[in-house]
Design a binder for these strands. Structure first.
Lengths: 164, 164
DNA sequence: GTTATTATGTTATACTATAACATTTTTTAG
DNA sequence: CTAAAAAATGTTATAGTATAACATAATAAC
């Protein structure tokens, strides 16, 4: 069963979810006794405003523009690290880029479908994939802790564009 | 069904497969009309001799030591690129490191279980995971081309070690 | 209010990867 | 066989990604 998926390919879905995402981040930080500072909030917003994964240095320059002052790399990386630790943001390793987690509270491990053309990402959560991986890990007596699944290809709207 | 897996966690399995891997690489290059040069062969061997994924610069220094001359980064990256193009070597994105593909001729997409302790990697091939991902892609009308699945955790021997 | 903790600023540097052009080696065609 | 073309490697420089180490500022705890 495709339990849950976020159609980040479609701009309207994303816009709607930003407000909810911020609210969620706020309450999560509250609950975990973590400080959702102005800087962290801003980085979070920038990541969520973008429908494509952002590299740390892209983030840096957006941040710099928004705050009208120069920003150094550690500033960005620390904020990213904080957000990742809370499960609010994920790194797409193959792209060295970061994206918001649409299902931050999910216990299932999500994965990403990344369009090579438009670079947008759909995050998907599948209990089948999850269970199968768990089962394989079990057979190998491997204690899995974290998983990263990245599928690259072409999304439906880019496929259509090519036909025109 | 766990169709196929390579217990890279166990050194003996790996040693045995090196000879076969080189033979396979040779015949693949022959078939594809590609030049399996001394440099490429050496890089291939270095990657296969190691049971853990190697970074490009580790590879560079091993290569340098083995050939008794200095090696520049592009030399290493070109060899890696060649081997990846033929499907003989894969990059573990999350580690910026490279490892030999145990099932280079498989049409199934493989994935990796990476031990955080000893850094060794098991490559696994599962038709279930593969089919489930294909099915999800189908439902999203996403044309998947390439996938990278990386599971991080603790392998059985490292788990045992911890108990002692 | 002082101390301790957490967060941010700042400088420097390490690590990863590729561009661009030169040279050498190998292959191909005549 | 050899000249031309193609493929591979050498070389220099630089771009892109990430973190260490220490200083300062803001916030929380006592």
């Amino acid at each position: 069963m495709l339990t849950n998926y976020s159609l980040v390919f479609q701009e309207s879905n994303r816009q709607k979810s930003i407000v909810a995402a911020i609210k969620h981040a706020e309450s999560l930080c509250m609950a975990e006794n973590q400080n959702f500072t102005a800087l962290r909030r801003l980085v979070f917003e920038i990541i969520w405003e973008n429908s494509v994964p952002l590299g740390a240095y892209e983030l840096k320059s957006i941040l710099s523009r928004k705050t009208n002052k120069s920003v150094d790399p550690p500033t960005v990386y620390r904020a990213i690290e904080f957000l990742m630790r809370l499960g609010l943001v994920t790194k797409i390793s193959a792209l060295n880029a970061f994206i918001g987690c649409p299902f931050p509270s999910s216990t299932r491990s999500n994965f990403f479908m990344i369009c090579n053309e438009c670079k947008r990402v759909a995050e998907v959560s599948s209990s089948e994939v999850d269970n199968e991986i768990k089962s394989i890990a079990g057979r190998l007596s491997f204690a899995s802790e974290r998983q990263q699944i990245e599928i690259f290809g072409t999304c439906v709207s880019c496929k259509t564009d090519k036909l025109i």
